[in-house]
Write a protein that binds this DNA or RNA. Structure first.
Length: 403
DNA sequence: CCTCCACAGGAAGCGCAGGAGT
DNA sequence: ACTCCTGCGCTTCCTGTGGAGG
């Protein structure tokens, strides 16, 4: 038995910090959701008719990331099911819910497949045409005469890739069904999503609408405290850790997921260190680590020319579009690559700005024209490290040569 | 007050890849 | 196997613009 490993294993088996780590994970749905009472009541009221055997209105839920949309929806559905069971409802009225994450299941077939699976209708994984899968699902629902609440999370992904065809059919499915019924709960964080839909789909999908406002720092703190009670041992976190996580996340549009991530990663770092408790220092380290992971991931998946433009920006650090373009052209030539036009590079800079890798500001310098001054917005060495992993860029980066 | 720089950013269109329908 | 359609990256051409210097 290796001493080094035994140390790590022992520490991991009886954690001094975590009592139950999973309550900090993003997909955990707690028994109480502070500061979402209003949304819970509203959604509950909208879906409640299902208990009388009536079809609930379709609902459209909008809110930024980490505002509790998914958690509230799952929470209400779970309670609906429990209540139905408790009063012995299921001998008379029957209903079921199907949760589909459209980012994971982003084709028409996969959405139908997942919905079917969730309500216990077995479909072959492959081999069926989409139309046939749809027909079987409808027949299943009709045969059982159940009301199905279909929850389409991150619904914008489905529409962006496949259009609103399936949504149209689902919203109209109740005309085809004789005994069963379908209600749709659509969830998105894209504010203008609803406008991109066909007018008929739009009106029937948003029979009811629910908006989830961002949390403020105080509310985030409450959320973290209620989770921390379950997640940590007594005295495992230092004074100020929770309010720091809350205020950092509040600055980023009140994102509760971000706040929980910060707290979880900070505690993981503390545990790895063998520290007796989580301190503010660990939170700062967590922030840096999360940011670094994000930058790494984003830069890695950038298209080739965006990478070249980004490299040009890292090399001159701050410059006008013209200066960046010149540098970019030099780099392209060195790599034996045809440069794109300045117009295109201008758009690429805008894209990098939107992702948050650079900061681009339009300024007018009078006699010297109107342009955009762009600066790097993330640690230079992180960017260079990732860029140098691309063999097409590696030779252009000193000291980060590809090994 | 006017000019004119150095671009921003809109509009239209082209070639291509990949998916759907037949 | 074939057409048709759509989205994407890109080009070409274009009009618009805040303010320092004449």
């Amino acid at each position: 038995m290796s001493d080094v490993l035994r140390d790590i294993f022992e520490r991991s088996v009886r954690s001094r910090i975590f009592k139950d780590r999973k309550v900090l994970l993003p997909d955990y749905v707690p028994d109480e959701l502070p500061h979402r009472e209003e949304q819970i009541k509203k959604l509950g009221a909208i879906l409640a008719p299902v208990l009388r055997g009536e079809r609930p209105s379709n609902v459209f839920i909008y809110g930024l990331t980490g505002t509790g949309k998914t958690a509230v929806t799952k929470f209400v559905i779970r309670n609906l099911m429990e209540y139905g069971k408790k009063i012995g409802l299921f001998s008379k009225v029957r209903f079921a819910s199907a949760y589909v994450n459209c980012r994971q299941d982003d084709t028409t077939y996969r959405v139908i497949y997942r919905s079917s699976e969730e309500i216990g209708c077995k479909l072959p994984f492959t081999g069926l045409s989409t139309a046939e899968a749809y027909r079987r699902l409808m027949r299943f629902i009709d045969r059982l005469g159940i009301i199905v609440i279909v929850i389409l999370d991150e619904i914008d992904f489905l529409v962006r890739k496949r259009g609103d065809e399936l949504l149209y059919r689902l919203t109209r499915a109740n005309d085809e069904l004789r005994r069963g019924k379908i209600s749709i709960v659509g969830i998105t964080n894209k504010i203008n999503f609803i406008d991109t839909l066909d007018a008929r789909v739009r009106s029937s999908l948003s029979e009811e609408e629910l908006v989830f406002p961002p949390y403020n720092a105080i509310q985030l703190e409450d959320i973290l405290r209620s989770r921390a009670k379950l997640a940590f041992h007594e005295d495992a976190i230092d004074e100020g850790v929770i309010s720091l996580c809350a205020s950092l996340a509040a600055k980023e549009h009140g994102d509760a997921r971000k706040a929980l991530d910060l707290l979880r990663v900070a505690s993981e770092i503390a545990e790895r260190e063998g520290a007796p408790k989580v301190t503010i220092k660990h939170v700062h380290m967590a922030r840096a680590e999360i940011e670094k992971d994000r930058v790494t991931e984003v830069v890695k998946t950038l298209p080739l020319h965006s990478k070249f433009v980004l490299l040009a920006i890292t090399q001159i650090y701050e410059g006008t579009t013209g200066e960046i373009y010149n540098r970019y052209k030099v780099l392209c030539r060195a790599a034996g690559l045809d440069p794109v036009t300045q117009r295109r590079v201008s758009d690429i800079i805008s894209e990098l700005d939107m992702i948050g890798l650079v900061n681009a500001k339009v300024v007018s310098r009078g006699r010297y024209g109107k342009t955009r001054i762009t600066t790097l917005n993330v640690p230079k060495h992180t960017v260079l490290t990732v860029l140098s992993e691309d063999m097409r860029l590696a030779p252009l980066i000193k000291g980060y040569r590809y090994r």
